[in-house]
Write a protein that binds this DNA or RNA. Structure first.
Lengths: 344, 344
DNA sequence: TTGTAAGCGTTATCAT
DNA sequence: ATGATAACGCTTACAA
């Protein structure tokens, strides 16, 4: 009826629970090999699986990694999640997932209740907390968790006192600007999200900075949602307004860019030919969309792997000192959505 | 240093652990309201979070849902996962994720060790187990888990004795065939995966059946991987072989279809104009790709939600009797990748 | 209404 | 090398 316990295994093998326990995990060094096999056989026979919660409470630590993402279905986060899960499984750890859904309150609430899981590691990605008082609370919460021996790794911008995996948003956007200038574009529109979204802001700013440095005119800024729909809307607005003064659109992420392309086409504007379009992230569909989307490749899965690596390497933190960082390079990929263009 | 325990809270509030426990969870009815607030205050002051593992072992049950998917990064599974996570969080449950990676052995291994977590629910999606002896073992494993009070829900085909959420693959494929015949296509190539992959087989068969019923010629079958690359390869092979005798390609899933479109284009063949292309799943990018991809919409997120609903409604199972099913309708969406075509 | 104490399934200490 | 037995943090009879 109910699953076999270690007691059952011990009885079956004719040894004490202590011996059974020792036989089944690491400390098997000091148990007679005959008993080891006895116990193993009994465990196999009963199809015994140790109760992880019981182990956790006895050992005082779990084998759990808690991952907080903004949205599982978003290819950006699912790629990161894939990396995290891969690395975690390789290390024999279990991954739990929580979805913050873009709400700082929810994110804070999640981190709070996460502590109840007593995970070994908490990885937070796509945090939107900025400016608000919630931010300090989040930091306190995480710091407290860390003090209790947990590892914290953020995948976002390095602006919180925790080990962080960042993608070089500013640098990538600057490189993109440079590349686009290089193929003849000078007048841009930027589809960006609310400035509280760090990622959006950094990409936006990196892009602006490079344009300014090159003496190009300041681009038209269109604020919208950080989603496919956001991109679609922004493009619709741009078309309505008229876009004679812009040669290309830079959307701060690919799903926005792809939404924008669809909107353009719906409005009879041919992306690539009538208006250049570039995105950021280089998600899979960037290369399947037509025209293929110019983007900035970000090693998302690698980010997840790095986060786990960071967490397990002992730099996840410990006692405040030594928050290691990993900065992942972002690489421009020019495609047909921004064909070379002769100035004028 | 280490997190506060219920003892700490009790001491802080000046009551016994029992009272503290009662005050903090359900049975608070029989504790003086003054003490309830005392305890609540103490808990808040200490920032107490109950140790979930300890609760689990004391209560004999967890609040965990274990989700097994083939690949987190695949939009098909991440959409399902999103539904599962959403429903689980709404019910106050924690979701753990494991990735089977397309390997039946791995899947079995996962389910086995999952039992250690003692999850309330196990949801398996994208199972590939077929034919092999592993299948029976999997069933036994899950049945045993169910006997111990766990709920099992499968998201796949209804061929295992557990509650199942299915998408109507056969019916959807048949409807697609009908629709394509309706707009003038008669000669097809089908890009399908190995027959062990149920989903692929069902879609393939549904498509064939409908063609046969309509007296259309038997399509060319091209076996390949169930992935984007698989689709790409198959299309490449098709082009090499020559495709004068085919008017449209049906790839058994969208990522394959999208890969195929890219391959066609790479070979100078224009999808939609030179060769119709249709997929299955209607993932987000199906409508962003050009030409927009004809597909069969499957309510993936809904599948995740339904699975949780099934699990929580008590039909997850219990004692063998009453395995409820949910069959999700699949709906044809004709787009530009299969423009109407005049016969001949 | 409250407290004492006996579990829950492990691991770890300490004798033997 | 092995077996009692005390933790681990919590819930829940059972008493008071």
């Amino acid at each position: 009826m109910s699953p076999p316990t270690l007691h059952d295994v011990a009885r079956e093998a004719g040894v004490s629970v202590a011996t059974a326990s020792r036989a089944l995990n690491g400390s098997s060094r000091n148990v007679r090999s005959e008993n080891v096999s006895r116990v193993r056989a009994a465990a196999a026979k009963l199809n015994y699986e140790p109760h992880l919660s019981a182990q956790a409470i006895a050992k005082g630590s779990t084998r759990t990694v808690a991952l907080v993402v903004r949205d599982v279905a978003d290819p950006y986060f699912s790629a990161i999640a894939a990396g995290v899960v891969q690395a975690a499984e390789a290390a024999g750890l279990i991954v739990t997932m929580a979805v913050a859904d873009g709400s700082p309150e929810r994110e804070l609430e999640i981190v709070r209740t996460l502590r109840g899981q007593r995970p070994r590691v908490i990885i937070v990605t796509g945090s939107r907390i900025e400016g608000t008082g919630l931010r300090e609370t989040l930091v306190e919460e995480l710091a407290e968790y860390r003090t209790a021996g947990g590892r914290v790794v953020l995948i976002s911008q390095r602006d919180l006192p925790f080990a962080t995996v960042t993608v070089d948003n500013g640098g990538g956007a600057a490189a993109l600007a440079r590349a686009l200038l290089g193929v003849g574009y000078r007048r841009f529109a930027v589809f960006h999200a609310a400035p509280e979204i760090r990622t959006s802001r950094e990409r936006h700013e990196g892009f602006l900075a490079e344009l300014a440095a090159a003496g190009a005119p300041e681009p038209l800024a269109v604020e919208t949602g950080f989603t496919r729909t956001g991109g679609y809307e922004a493009a619709r607005r741009l078309v309505e307004r008229g876009f004679e003064d812009v040669e290309a659109v830079f959307a701060v992420n690919d799903v926005m860019a792809i939404g924008a392309m669809t909107a353009l086409r719906d409005a009879g504007v041919l992306p690539g030919r009538d208006l250049g379009v570039a995105g950021f992230d280089d998600i899979d569909s960037a290369m399947d969309v037509r025209p293929a989307l110019t983007s900035v490749a970000v090693p998302l899965r690698e980010a997840g792997l790095s986060a786990m690596r960071l967490a397990l390497s002992g730099d996840g933190s410990g006692d405040g000192s030594g928050e290691a960082d990993v900065r992942l390079p972002a690489e421009v990929v020019l495609r047909e959505s921004t064909p070379p263009r002769r100035p004028g």
